[in-house]
Design a protein around this nucleic acid. Structure first.
Length: 492
RNA sequence: GGCGCGUUCGUCUAGUGGCCCAGGACGCCGCCCUUUCAAGGCGGAGAUCAUCGGUUCGAAUCCGAUACGCGCUACCA
């Protein structure tokens, strides 16, 4: 194959739901490869299964890609020289190819019913024979098939060569050899006139001048079908690269059973696209011996198929969490405040007035940054800053962390109340509050860590959270003292 | 069952005959810091390189067998 043109890769999902994390990783690698090679990346929708079609999928697919920062040069929305990019709008193309193959005797109409096929497979299973179409209709005379086609439903099967072997030259795995004797005549055109995946990819990858077909490893078994189709059509195949599967915690192909698989679910849970991108990039690929975080830009510049490993990878959510925290801490000051504003608005209870007080958000921003791993933790962490009283909590919580009974809590609260109350309204700042609380140490005869947690609960209804003194400063003197009094009352 | 692929710390990986009694990262443990929780810094444990047998002066790296795992086996992609 003369490969003088630019590298062209594609992502060709079927619109059967929200894009899967494993699928999107294939998209990411395909995109990165194209970009690194200075080539083009194409988005094509393989909507040939009318039964499983989900209307909203196409938008979800594009939204997932956009969110991750994967851009495409040609596709359903932007068009391009090979439009249309929906397979459902390219039916005549596939039908023409099917007809050509029938005319050349390389494919044939099959009239077998689903019932007969079921029976056949059951018999094969019972006889412990390998399953596969038995070729009944392959033996039908051309004229007879032609005649029946006028009144009967039929599919078009490809007549696979059964002698010898077919070799796939895979960019990730090297040569993979398949015995042709084990192949069977697969359906390439369904009875509804739509192509199956096998015909669809071959026709479209050729028409769209795809040079490198990068896809998941689950496709490697059907590679001989594609190779033989290319041969029959007299076309040059693209180069193939089969990516290792992404496994769930159960070490099985990642599926809904093993947790969230939809890319958009990760956005909803507060993962940053940069984090997911870096995470996915390093799942099956590496830049070098020591890089553990990679930016999208680096990927687009340095990705190579040579460094894709052949073995499957387990999806480790803890690593994703780490990367997310990493990227949160790397955000710009303004970007972080904006992010907090967005997530606070979405997550805070409706009774808190909108727009959310920007002053409070800005004050809380630096406190939040070091302790958040997912963005959906933002609202629960700062909710206490917006009411007069602290959220509800059980009195036992006051001393949960430090042991001791109610007397201890009351002692701490009384002392804190006294010390903080003596701070005037104009002396109410972090330093003064800090000094006042630390001043309790000799009085209480205990280290701060043995009494400060009581104050945390009084202020934020939790024994841990964003820094206490800053929180008190944000809340102001009046609300702080009120919360301490409420806690004092609860403690008895 | 058949065919295919895979097998380096719990996880993601580096490694293509000597630099490896195996390096990095996440997680874990400890210490430091410290107003909680984190973050950060420092240190540690953690892999007989699936097993067995070859080739070689020398193997995680090459060859073979075995085991285990996974994928595919539709008028789904």
């Amino acid at each position: 194959m003369s490969m003088t043109g630019p590298v062209r890769t594609r992502y060709a999902p079927s619109p059967t739901g929200d894009p899967h994390i494993g699928n999107i990783r294939s998209a990411l690698f395909s995109w990165a490869f194209a970009r690194a090679q200075g080539g083009q990346f194409i988005l094509r929708i393989e909507d040939t299964d009318r039964n499983r079609l989900v209307e909203t999928s196409v938008e979800a697919i594009m939204e997932s890609l956009r969110w991750l920062g994967i851009d495409w040069d040609e596709g359903p929305d932007v068009g391009g020289p090979h439009a249309p990019y929906f397979q459902s709008e390219r039916l005549p193309l596939y039908q023409k190819m099917a007809q050509t193959l029938i005319d050349e005797g390389k494919a044939y109409r099959c009239f077998c019913t689903a019932e007969r096929l079921d029976l056949m497979r059951a018999a094969q299973a019972a006889a412990k024979k390998p399953p596969g179409y038995d070729g009944l209709c392959r033996a039908l005379p051309h004229a007879a098939a032609e005649a029946r086609a006028a009144s009967e439903r039929f599919v078009v099967r490809f007549a696979m060569k059964r002698e010898g072997a077919t070799t796939l030259h895979d960019l990730v795995r090297g040569d993979v050899v398949f015995e042709n004797a084990l192949q069977d005549d697969f359906v390439m055109l369904k009875s509804d006139g739509y192509p199956t995946y096998h015909l669809g990819v071959v026709v479209d990858d050729t028409d769209m001048e795809i040079t490198h077909a990068i896809r998941g490893d689950e496709w490697i078994s059907s590679a001989p079908k594609h190779i033989q189709l290319y041969e029959a059509l007299g076309w040059d195949p693209p180069q193939w690269a089969h990516l290792p599967l992404i496994l769930g915690p159960d070490h099985k192909k990642l599926s809904k059973r093993s947790g969230d698989t939809a890319v958009l679910d990760y956005r909803a849970k507060g993962y940053l696209p940069e984090a997911l991108c870096s995470f996915l990039a390093l799942l099956g690929w590496s830049l070098d011996a020591s890089t553990s975080v990679v930016t999208r830009e680096e990927l687009a510049e340095k990705f190579s198929l040579e460094r894709v490993v052949p073995n499957p990878a387990v999806f480790d959510i803890e690593r994703l969490d780490f990367l997310n925290g990493h990227y949160i801490r790397a955000m710009s000051e303004d970007g972080w405040v904006d992010t907090i504003a967005t997530w606070a608005d979405a997550g805070l209870p409706p009774h808190i007035p909108r727009p959310i007080d920007r002053g409070i958000l800005s004050a809380a921003a630096p406190l939040l940054r070091e302790r958040i791993t997912r963005l959906d933790e933002i609202a629960p962490s700062i909710e206490f800053l917006f009411g007069f009283e602290a959220p509800e909590y059980l009195p036992e919580l006051l001393t949960e962390k430090i042991g001791g009974g109610h007397e201890h809590a009351t002692q701490v609260l009384d002392a804190a109340l006294l010390a903080l109350d003596s701070l005037g309204g104009d002396g109410w700042d972090v330093e003064a509050i800090k000094a006042a609380v630390f001043g309790l140490e000799p009085l209480l005869g205990a280290k701060p860590r043995k009494f400060v947690p009581v104050l945390y609960v009084a202020i934020m209804a939790k024994p841990a959270g964003i820094p206490l003194f800053e929180s008190m400063a944000i809340l102001g003197r009046e609300r702080t003292l009120q919360r301490l009094r409420t806690a004092r009352a609860k403690a008895g």
